[in-house]
Design a protein around this nucleic acid. Structure first.
Length: 769
RNA sequence: UGGGGCGUCGUCAAGUGGUAAGACACGGGUUUUUGGUACCCGCAUUCGCAGGUUCGAAUCCUGCCGCCCCAACCA
């Protein structure tokens, strides 16, 4: 079983079920990137899922490069991907694999398919292939080459392999069904000819396997138990199973499960479009801190811990969803809060002159690196002098209501320093504030005035004489709209202020900050000494994320409106509506007059239209129903039970395969209608009948499901439940009366479903008031 | 001849017949020398909609609506 640190999800449920059933001895997953680009935060979700599963179940997760297309893949990417997975904190141990290492085996298995008559060489052109494939609503047509002999297919395939043909001359296809409703199954391509050097196998191969053929075999060859991929591969699962079954992989073999890929608002995730961002120079590279790549996040200063926490926070499910960026930011802040020492830096400096401070006097103040609530220790000295820098936004000549920083004539506390008062505002010709002339309270050293008066505001500052200038890059979301991936031209929605460079003034202790170190610039955000550009000669910090700001939006924030985009219209013909079940039943009746006759009969019997429709939609079901009503005269009741109860239990299973007949079911309904068993008791009996068949009355007796009307017995059951659920009872008594149903349920359970529910209700009502 | 997947709070997401978890966001409060953090409180009478079955339905049945995926020699 998984440990309980990770929240559960449907995949864990499947694994638990498989392990409990002994289907697999151990969980083996894999992360299978194609080395054709950089990994992004969406991949991180998949990595955390696959490696996390292996970790929690004591299994194994392979890193496997799905390098089956030599024209797109490069060594650079296999290197960057490994670095990124490792940086995220995962280890594949010795289990590093390449699809290209399996090419020989895959080839041999393909020859096996040819020999079994399950694959053939097709020589149609690309265009002809497409035409033959049909459309979503029309079946495809078989290729004239489909009937080539095994010998000819083997010969052709061998010559394809040897490189005797140009690209496009032939392909190897599976022989399945050109009329399959699932387009994927219409004789899918298995191999194509590609004359290109592969980054690992060089010129060894002239034919390369297609994804659908290769991927499942890679999984099977590696002994993967649970092959997890994204939703869009749902349709491909049928072929996944077909290939494994027909190449001889028996259970336990891998099975594919699909989950929803990560979508983040204000973020573009498609590899193709990310490449355009880089190639057109909208960003400064794959590791630009604005990129959603792992490398970008790393460069920005996001930690692997934060990304892992984020992956866990968003969960794993099958619903297509868009996660808001705020969740990622939360994880980043949550992580950095504990690890980033606090320092002071002024990003937009405004000069303050303390007119009552001697020109050459410097006070060395003690400042803690950590706030009271972070259990870490450490302090540094910060020099305080006559001239200081403060944040321009921390002074307001005309303050809005509720503002509690520096105002003309007002006081503010300089963090770890003194309380100052603004005496005079010096302005330039254009009215711009040039500097503030202030006085200080000498009896407030460290921050608190000796007379005990309260000063509401505290701001950060840096001594002008000691300040260290630095290049600080303020990053923000790259796009101005929530869904750039949907935009016809995302360039129109690039955020012009996604990167704002400022020349900031830092407290002197930061002069020795190491590249790659995290800091909180107090009241502003978390910053990261750039791992590449930051050094002794030049200080460069990236803003990872701002602090949460409940006061208000700061100037420079991007507007948050969501631009409504026209929905992409699928080109070509409009998708036809599905044939509904109702239509299917109507069609069945149109073809079979016996069914039409049943519908008429049921109508005369006075059945509800819906029930009659369902019952007369399938001959076996109609026969079953007729047998049942022969055994119990209340037709309406029998109909309800067949439609609502029986159908719910048997699902898609044909009723003729049931271990009991309609007559037995009719007797069961009779029992329920007579009150010999309760409705839930009857359902319990049905469960047994589904398993072993038998007579309902006898089973009800045997299972102790005959309805209990005995008030004494029920009173005892009620007492037992109330005793056991004293906590819930207290809540009920406090007014949580919705709990009434809960108690009814508990008593019903106590009785195994045999109690008369109405009686239980009445008794409970009397008892609870 | 179409097939498949999915709809639970602003955003994610538990829940599988016993009476709507949790997180983010949001609102209010306490603490605070960061308008940060931490802590407390509030935040879905209702689960896409409509009928039905049941003592009891987000869960079962019927119908309807909406969104996503599939017609590359990509993965």
């Amino acid at each position: 079983m998984a440990d309980d640190t990770a929240p559960t999800n449907f995949i864990r449920d499947i694994i638990d079920r498989d392990l409990a059933a002994g289907r697999y001895q151990r969980v083996v997953t894999r992360f299978p990137p194609e080395p054709n680009g950089y990994l992004h935060i969406g991949h991180a979700k998949s990595i955390c899922l696959n490696f996390g599963l292996a970790r929690d179940y004591g299994g194994q997760c392979n890193l496997r490069f799905d390098d089956t297309n030599p024209t797109k893949e490069e060594q650079e990417f296999v290197d960057s991907i490994q670095a990124d997975v490792r940086w995220l904190g995962f280890d594949w141990g010795p289990h590093l694999y390449f699809a290209s290492d399996y090419f020989q085996t895959m080839h041999d298995l393909a020859v096996g398919l040819i020999e079994k008559g399950l694959a053939y060489v097709d020589s149609l052109s690309k265009e002809e292939l497409r035409e033959h494939r049909g459309s979503l609503t029309e079946p495809g047509r078989e290729s004239p080459y489909r009937s080539r002999s095994v010998a000819e297919n083997k010969d052709l395939f061998e010559r394809m392999r040897k490189g005797e043909f140009p690209e496009g001359a032939h392909v190897l296809r599976a022989k399945i069904d050109m009329a399959a409703p699932n387009m994927i199954m219409r004789d899918p391509l298995l191999y194509r000819i590609v004359h290109a050097a592969h980054h690992r196998s060089g010129d060894t191969w002239c034919i390369y396997p297609m994804y659908d053929y290769a991927h499942c075999l890679e999984d099977a060859l590696e002994g993967i138990s649970h092959s997890i991929c994204t939703l869009e591969f749902d349709n491909n699962r049928e072929l996944y199973d077909w290939v494994l079954e027909n190449t001889g992989f028996k259970e336990p073999r891998p099975h594919q499960y699909e989950f929803a890929r990560l979508n983040l608002d204000y973020t573009m995730m498609s590899k193709r479009r990310l490449r355009i961002l880089v190639e057109e120079g909208h960003v400064e590279g794959w590791d630009d801190p604005r990129m959603p790549t792992i490398a970008g996040h790393r460069r920005r200063g996001v930690t692997p811990e934060a990304i892992r926490a984020f992956a866990e926070l968003v969960g794993v499910a099958k619903t297509n969803s868009v996660v808001d960026l705020g969740k990622l930011e939360f994880c980043v802040r949550d992580d950095l809060n504990q690890r980033a020492p606090r320092v002071m830096a002024v990003l937009d400096p405004l000069k303050v002159v303390l007119t009552d401070w001697p020109a050459d006097k410097v006070d060395e103040l003690d400042a803690s690196y950590w706030p009271h609530d972070v259990p870490k220790e450490g302090t540094r000295k910060v020099p305080f002098g006559r001239e200081l820098w403060i944040e321009r936004a921390d002074f307001a000549a005309d303050p809005p209501p509720g503002y509690h920083r520096l105002v003309p004539g007002g006081e503010v506390r300089l963090r770890y320093g003194y309380v100052i008062r603004c005496d005079e505002v010096v302005r330039g010709d254009d009215g711009e504030v040039l500097e503030l002339r202030c006085s200080h309270d000498p009896a407030s050293r460290g921050g608190n005035p000796a007379d005990g008066r309260k000063v509401k505001g505290t701001i950060h500052w840096v001594s002008a004489a000691h300040a260290v200038p630095a290049d600080v890059r303020l990053y923000d979301r790259l796009f101005t709209i929530a869904n750039p991936d949907a935009a016809e031209d995302f360039r129109a929605y690039l955020n012009p202020t996604s990167k704002v460079d400022v020349r900031a003034m830092l407290e002197p202790s930061l002069a020795s900050a190491a590249a790659g170190s995290h800091w909180q610039f107090e009241r502003q955000g978390y910053f990261f000494a750039d791992p590449v550009l930051h050094g002794a000669g030049r200080l460069v910090f990236n803003r990872v994320v701002t602090l949460k700001d409940t006061w208000g939006k700061k100037a420079g924030d991007v507007p948050t409106e969501v631009v409504r985009l026209e929905k992409k219209v699928p080109d070509g013909d409009k998708r036809p509506d599905k044939r509904t079940r109702a239509e299917a039943r109507a069609a069945a009746r149109a073809e079979d007059p016996r069914l039409a006759a049943r519908l008429a009969t049921y109508g005369e019997l006075g059945l509800a239209d819906d029930d009659a429709d369902v019952l007369a939609g399938d001959l076996a079901l109609a026969d079953f129903f007729d047998a049942a009503r022969a055994a119990h005269a209340d037709v309406a009741s029998v109909a309800k039970w067949v439609v609502n109860v029986l159908l719910a239990e048997v699902k898609e299973r044909p009723v003729e395969d049931l271990p009991f007949d309609g007559a037995a079911f009719g007797r069961l309904v009779a029992l329920a209608d007579a009150g010999d068993v309760s409705a839930s008791g009857a359902k319990a009996v049905l469960e047994v009948m589904l398993r072993e068949g038998g007579d309902p009355a006898a089973l009800a007796r045997r299972e102790g499901l005959e309805q209990v009307h005995d008030e004494g017995v029920l009173e005892a059951a009620i007492a037992a439940v109330l005793d056991r659920e004293s906590e819930q009872l207290a809540r009920y008594r406090e007014g949580k009366t919705q709990l009434f149903g809960f108690f009814v349920g508990q008593v019903m359970k106590e009785s195994g479903g045999a109690a008369n529910p109405q009686l239980v209700r009445d008794l409970l009502k009397a008892k609870l008031g």
